[in-house]
């Protein structure tokens, strides 16, 4: 069986490598995607949206639907893990058997370092979210860094300490809220008579903006929504996984 599986993987791999020969060369200006679509983005993005980072503009504006449902995938993953682990059949015996060894006392050096590190991490995460349309980054990366700062708190102290800062209920609420911010910005555009997520209509209600700057500002709003959802759902996934859904003990 193992030999058969290896042969299958080997043949598939050889086919993949043979297909890769047909790819256009890296950075080839004459390949099909570089001739039409990329050229359009490079030439029009700054004029259309006043956003220098083309990647963010494509993700949050031109392909806004894609990013919205990507965020909802993260949200559904968090909900699914919470549903499986915390509402499943509870078996205290099994839970005890899998339980952690009695936790060691927190280490002074680690805890002090963490106390110094977390504010810097969170500040950097906020910068990544707020500056996402000018430099690499955005709501997703910033949200992950924020979640990592809470997980670091949980690793250095214990789970209850992290949950006292961001409780599970609040995390689920923020996860909802972030997605609602995203969909809400889209719905405001509909209410103003444009298409869903057509940000340029927002200049009617945003003060001192034209239809170009409105797209830039709406992208910031959308990134904030993504950041909320990603941060709270990833933290929720961590707490559920590490405590087997009980949220009582764990790292």
């Amino acid at each position: 069986m193992k030999v058969f599986a290896f042969c299958l993987v080997f043949v598939t791999g050889v086919m993949l490598v043979m297909t890769a020969q047909d790819f256009p060369a890296w950075g080839d200006a004459h390949s099909a995607p570089n001739q039409y679509l990329s050229t359009y983005y490079i030439q029009h993005t700054y004029r259309d949206t006043a956003v220098p980072n083309i990647v963010t503009a494509v993700l949050a504006d031109y392909r806004g639907f894609d990013t919205m449902f990507e965020t909802s995938v993260i949200f559904c993953a968090g909900l699914g893990i919470a549903a499986i682990l915390s509402f499943g059949p509870r078996n205290p015996k099994r839970r005890k058997r899998l339980g952690l060894p009695p936790s060691a006392e927190g280490d002074l050096i680690i805890q002090t370092t963490t106390r110094l590190l977390i504010p810097v991490t969170q500040l950097f995460a906020l910068y990544v979210i707020a500056h996402g349309h000018h430099s690499p980054g955005g709501g997703f990366q910033g949200g992950v860094i924020l979640a990592a700062s809470f997980i670091l708190l949980s690793l250095a102290y214990d789970l209850n300490m992290a949950l006292s800062r961001l409780s599970d209920r609040l995390a689920l609420l923020w996860g909802n809220g972030g997605l609602l911010i995203y969909a809400g910005i889209g719905l405001i555009c509909v209410a103003l008579g444009a298409h869903f997520l057509e940000y340029s209509a927002l200049h009617a209600i945003l003060p001192a903006t034209d239809s170009v700057m409105a797209r830039s500002h709406a992208m910031l709003g959308v990134e904030i929504g993504v950041g909320f959802t990603v941060m709270s759902m990833l933290f929720s996934i961590y707490t559920q996984l590490v405590s087997l859904g009980s949220l009582e003990d764990g790292l």
């Binding site: 980072n53 990647v55 963010t56 899998l98 952690l100 690499p136 980054g137 955005g138 997703f140 990366q141 992950v144 860094i145 979640a147 990592a148 997980i151 990833l234 996934i237 961590y238 996984l241 590490v242 087997l244 764990g250 790292l251």
Partner: peptide, 24 residues
């Protein structure tokens, strides 16, 4: 942008998730 995401999600959080699962 992709490198940033890979560093934050791939090298950072998913490793932590896997270790949390192994622990349990």
């Amino acid at each position: 942008d992709v490198a940033f995401t890979e560093a934050a999600v791939g090298a950072g959080l998913s490793t932590v998730f896997m270790i949390a699962t192994i622990l349990r």
